[in-house]
């Protein structure tokens, strides 16, 4: 008789499932399309030439920002169909018939998608970063901070998308998370200033802070602007906040999924 798999083993199995699904559905094609786009861009730049340090910095900023956006977008698309897809295709039931808790299943999905997202981030990031000549000064510590925060940002995106995918159709999940990704920071800023001057302003400001702020975890422009790295406390604070948001979304998703009638 074989012993029941432990939770980490089950998570690894689910995680592997995410990757097999990724290859089977040819999602890798989308990544290849983006890589092709970067390749075309690099070729065009090589033909036209960069010319001056300012343009090199501009290209670096553009490439890294695109990487940040594409990595989040691909992760969002991947995560948004994980559980609804398994429910539609009825592949979820045999999985849950195994000695596997729903909690483990969900965490496995989150780990798998986060790893996939980080791999996309690193692949596109390298293609964007390597070919651009570094003609101005950029801070290496800040680059490392940027990388770590992008990883946390992807993990947060996965957790919130998983949560939303349990309660809304895929299209709505993509639209809502897409808006939060692109405009979350602006919405928080604009919302926080809604009742400027009023006694309720503090409350409104507080409430808007509950939205996940992906733009605060994106330090690309700070990096290409040649600004100093974040202080230790600022960096730890950002890591801590994204970890709290991720943990909360994941715990809530587990709770919703536990109660969901399948």
């Amino acid at each position: 008789m074989t012993a029941a798999p432990t939770a980490p083993q089950s998570i690894m199995v689910i995680c592997r499932g995410v990757f097999i699904e990724l290859m089977r559905r040819k999602d890798i094609h989308v990544l290849l399309i983006f890589m092709g786009l970067y390749f075309v861009a690099t070729t065009v730049v090589a033909i036209v030439g960069i010319g001056n340090p300012q343009t090199a910095t501009f290209l670096l900023n553009l490439g890294l920002t695109m990487t940040w956006f594409f990595a989040h977008l691909l992760t969002l698309i991947l995560v948004s169909r994980q559980i609804p897809g398994e429910i539609d295709n009825r592949t979820l039931y045999p999985l849950l018939a195994r000695p596997l808790t729903r909690q483990t299943y969900l965490i496995g999905k989150w780990v798998g998608c986060t790893i996939a997202g980080v791999l996309v981030l690193l692949t596109l990031g390298l293609i964007a970063w390597l070919p651009v000549p570094k003609l101005e000064e950029y801070n290496t510590t800040l680059l490392l901070q940027l990388l770590v925060l992008h990883v946390f940002s992807i993990a947060m995106m996965c957790a919130f998308t998983l949560l939303l995918s349990l309660v809304s159709p895929q299209g709505i999940t993509i639209i809502v998370m897409g808006i939060l990704l692109l405009l979350g920071g602006r919405i928080i800023d604009a919302g926080s200033g809604l009742l400027e001057g009023s006694s309720f302003n503090g409350v409104v400001r507080w409430v808007f802070q509950y939205l996940p702020n992906f733009s605060d975890l994106n330090l690309v422009t700070r990096y290409t602007d040649g600004i100093a790295p974040l202080t230790g406390s600022e960096f730890v604070g950002l890591v801590g906040v994204s970890a709290i948001f991720t943990l909360f979304a994941l715990a809530l998703a587990v709770s919703v999924f536990d109660r969901k009638r399948l």
Partner: peptide, 11 residues
């Protein structure tokens, strides 16, 4: 968390 987030403005 807003105790922390309101103090963090990296950009």
């Amino acid at each position: 968390s807003p105790v922390l987030t309101s103090r963090l403005e990296p950009n």
